[in-house]
Design a binder for these strands. Structure first.
Lengths: 259, 259
DNA sequence: GTTCGTTGTGTCCATGCCGATACAACGACG
DNA sequence: CGTCGTTGTATCGGCATGGACACAACGAAC
């Protein structure tokens, strides 16, 4: 699935870098026992459900019935029975989805929706160096201050390494500065005081850029209702917070070997 | 990239449904002008940076040098100059990455890390019906109460439709019940009072299941530090919250046509 | 028993992608 | 000028994937 860097509910554009380096996209899949269930398979299952037969589904999709049946067999070897098939014509034959198939489709839809949200979310990028490592957690010294972030994956940055910390706008929570809870009372450990510089209202969501003293703005996505309750406008003082678990650290050394 | 439903920093397993329906996976890519930059392209650029030449990079990767050069030309037509090449041998020839290439790689790495986090995060699924729509926002009546969630994508559920609301554990914030901020003071609008039923400590993160009165637990991922500050243990009363913008709504009618 | 339209199985063919190979040109170095 | 190892360009062959087609078997409905 391709997004244009703009989830319908999100603000424009992917990365922060100068120049146009394309829209974020992904292909979602579920993998089991060497078989990969992808969007094409999901379309086949949906068509089977709608048409009531593999034959009708293949025709609807412009696909080979023989290949469709073969593909179903491969998927069923890995994921269990997906399509209950009965031979016979007129009203005697046909196919219907099993409960497992519906569950698989629902899970695939949720995965796709979640990945679409992630790919389409405006990201904020903190650049800095790793000051400390605690297991998967890294403390990164950035221009805006210290950022606690998850450093998982390969290669794992070590202390001193230059890194980028990325957080999606949908993971950033905004607070009224006068009523921000004490640090002990919540698990959202990264918090920055700043000024809202851009407040862009959509149908149901508001895109906010918060100047937190770093090179680029920290971007947040909040509902219209939340923005109203916070009295958000350009120039408003706000406190922006996000959980360390909602961030990701990546090394910036392009030459590093990734296996 | 395939995950086993278990981000190194996250708790076990993907969906909530019974039965094993595989690990969430994805292929990340960046798309511009009809060209798609994917993991294989990223590997090529990294190898070029490491080897200092397209020739050496192709050999290192077991790939055709002719194809590699052709692929670079295709990518450069869409993304701009990526590799500065100079003919000549011994010390006269070779290739190096441009600044645009490094920026592209960094963005691809952040996208991959973010998608990996999403794919690997333990999800909580609320099942219910759409009570109200406000643009991209849906209010869903679920067992645990009313949930405000983003309903983007196709098809968009309408009022009355049965849906699932999915939220990743990395987006769920836990609060001390005694010090939870008033609803007006924060943009995290979904909040549920519950009891921590499972607290599983990892190196740097803690996986918490919170019983909020729905069928399944609401899962949260917090840092060890945050868990300590909250005094988290099985049996603790907590307040769990997440932003509407961090959720996604999907229709559950498997037969629905998706175009 | 016949009809209808399905499933099940097997085979053939086309297409796209990628690795391999070859030749020419280049340019720093000795 | 020769060497070395790179880039640039062109072509060939193999492999995997997927559509097409054919035939047999099936089973509800009439």
């Amino acid at each position: 699935m391709t997004t244009n860097g703009r989830d319908p509910a999100d603000c424009g554009g992917g990365g922060d870098e100068a120049g146009d380096n394309g829209a974020a996209a992904f292909e979602a899949s579920l993998v089991a026992d060497g078989a990969t269930f992808d969007a094409r398979d999901a379309a086949l299952l949906r068509a089977v459900a709608a048409a009531g037969s593999v034959s009708g589904a293949a025709a609807e999709l412009g696909r080979s019935r023989a290949r469709a049946l073969s593909r179903l067999e491969t998927l069923e070897a890995a994921f269990g029975d997906l399509v209950q098939r009965r031979r016979g014509g007129a009203d005697g034959g046909g196919s219907r989805l099993t409960a497992d198939a519906r569950a698989l489709l629902a899970r695939f839809d949720r995965l796709t929706a979640a990945l679409s949200g992630t790919a389409g979310a405006a990201e904020s990028v903190f650049e800095g160096r790793v000051a400390d490592r605690e297991g998967e957690l890294a403390v990164v010294d950035a221009d805006a201050g210290s950022v606690r972030a998850l450093a998982v994956g390969d290669p794992e940055p070590a202390a001193g390494d230059p890194v980028q910390v990325s957080v999606g706008a949908d993971a950033v929570t905004l607070h009224d500065p006068a009523e921000t809870p004490p640090a002990d009372a919540t698990s959202a450990r990264n918090r920055f005081t700043g000024v809202a510089t851009a407040v862009e209202r959509g149908d149901a969501v508001v895109r906010v850029d918060v100047d937190v003293g770093a090179g680029g703005p920290l971007r947040a996505l909040v509902t219209v209702d939340s923005a109203d309750r916070l009295g958000l406008a350009a120039g408003s003082d706000v406190v922006a917070s996000f959980k360390a678990t909602a961030t990701r650290v990546t090394a910036v050394d392009a030459g590093g070997r990734r296996e």
